[in-house]
């Protein structure tokens, strides 16, 4: 549908992402659909996701950038703001979206959310409860998940 007429904005964003990548984040469009990106985010150091690499998918809807991109974790992650399907609770992906935000800024925000989980605004209540009542146990579980599901492939 949009194969031939990809908006200039998306073309430029993609070019910049490839030419000037963000440290610890990679985003590559699929050849058969330039609005669909394979994303990998390295777990931030000093977090319970350290040493892990998390795969995500990102899709730019037809009305992007007036509407926010759709982003979802593919790798299992133990996080109070991510549910079992990998959906993310992040304000800039919803009501705080601005057309002046970009793929780059969105992915940086997700990385920041991994460094600083917000159990007071949870998407997964059971995870959030553990996070609030027994943080040590929550961090332990998150590390275990990271080791089991997000280990770097050698």
């Amino acid at each position: 549908m949009s194969g031939g007429s990809l908006p200039r904005r998306i073309v430029k964003e993609t070019q910049r992402l490839i030419a000037d990548p963000v440290a610890g984040i990679s985003a590559t469009p699929y050849a058969d659909n330039l609005r669909y990106f394979a994303v990998a985010i390295e777990g931030p150091s000093d977090s319970c996701y350290e040493e892990g690499v998390f795969q995500l998918e990102l899709f730019l809807p037809a009305d992007y950038p007036m509407a926010p991109p759709k982003v979802r974790f593919l790798t299992k992650i133990y996080h109070p703001n991510v549910d079992k399907l990998g959906r993310i609770c992040l304000d800039i992906l919803k009501e705080k979206w601005s057309p002046a935000l970009q793929i780059r800024t969105v992915l940086l925000s997700i990385q920041a959310l991994m460094s600083a989980p917000n159990p007071d605004d949870p998407l997964d209540n059971t995870v959030a409860d553990v996070w609030k009542n027994d943080e040590a146990k929550a961090l332990e579980t998150a590390r275990e998940f990271t080791k089991n599901f997000a280990a770097k492939k050698e």
Binding site: P7, R8, R9, P65, A100
Partner: peptide, 11 residues
């Protein structure tokens, strides 16, 4: 600010 670039469409 005087600018001739739009930060939404990058034109």
């Amino acid at each position: 600010e005087e600018t001739n670039t739009c930060i939404i469409c990058f034109e």
